[in-house]
Amino acid sequence: MITVYVTAQGDKYHSAPDCIGLTSGQEGGEVQDYNLNPIVPKDLEEAAKKWKPCKLCRRGAA
C-alpha cells in the first residue's frame, strides 16, 4: 500500500505530509483565519479516484 496525504477541501494528493503544496495551502488558510481541514493519510488507489496528483511531489503520477 502506498500512502498519500489529502485534505477534505483540497483537490490534490501529496506524497508527504510536509509537501510544500500541502503545507502552503494550510498556512494560507491559517493566515486568513479559515477553519482548516486536517491532513489525512489515504491509500493511493483510493485517493486517485477523487484527487489529482500534486505537481510538486507527483507521487503515483503517470
Rank of each mutant, 00 (worst) to 15 (best):
M1G: 14
M1R: 08
M1C: 15
I2A: 05
I2L: 10
I2H: 05
I2P: 08
T3Y: 08
T3W: 10
T3K: 08
V4I: 11
Y5N: 04
Y5S: 02
Y5F: 11
Y5T: 00
Y5R: 05
V6N: 03
V6Q: 02
T7Q: 07
T7S: 09
T7D: 00
T7C: 08
G10Q: 02
G10P: 15
G10R: 00
G10W: 03
G10T: 02
G10Y: 00
D11P: 04
D11Q: 15
D11S: 14
D11V: 10
K12C: 11
K12M: 07
K12S: 10
Y13K: 04
Y13L: 04
Y13F: 12
H14Y: 09
H14G: 00
H14L: 03
H14F: 09
S15P: 15
S15F: 09
A16W: 13
A16M: 13
A16H: 07
P17A: 12
P17H: 11
D18S: 14
D18C: 13
D18P: 15
C19T: 00
I20P: 00
I20A: 15
I20G: 04
I20E: 09
I20M: 11
G21F: 03
G21I: 00
G21Y: 02
T23W: 06
T23P: 12
S24V: 06
S24P: 04
S24Y: 10
G25H: 10
G25L: 11
Q26D: 03
Q26H: 07
Q26T: 10
Q26C: 12
E27T: 15
E27C: 13
E27N: 08
G28L: 09
G28T: 15
G29F: 13
G29K: 13
G29S: 08
E30I: 04
E30V: 05
E30K: 13
V31Y: 11
V31Q: 08
V31S: 03
D33H: 12
D33F: 11
D33N: 14
N35K: 12
N35R: 12
N35M: 14
N35E: 08
L36N: 14
L36Y: 05
N37F: 13
I39A: 07
V40C: 03
V40F: 04
P41F: 02
K42T: 01
D43S: 09
L44Q: 05
L44Y: 15
L44D: 05
L44S: 06
E45A: 14
E45F: 12
E46G: 10
E46A: 14
E46L: 13
E46C: 08
E46Q: 13
A47Q: 03
A47K: 06
A47L: 05
A48P: 05
A48C: 06
A48I: 01
K49E: 08
K50Q: 07
K50D: 01
W51Q: 00
K52F: 10
K52N: 10
K52D: 04
P53V: 00
C54M: 05
C54K: 02
K55L: 13
K55S: 06
L56W: 07
C57A: 00
C57K: 05
C57Y: 06
R58I: 07
R58K: 11
R58G: 06
R58E: 14
R59Y: 13
R59F: 15
R59A: 06
R59V: 03
G60E: 10
G60Q: 06
A61G: 07
A61Y: 06
A61S: 12
A62S: 11
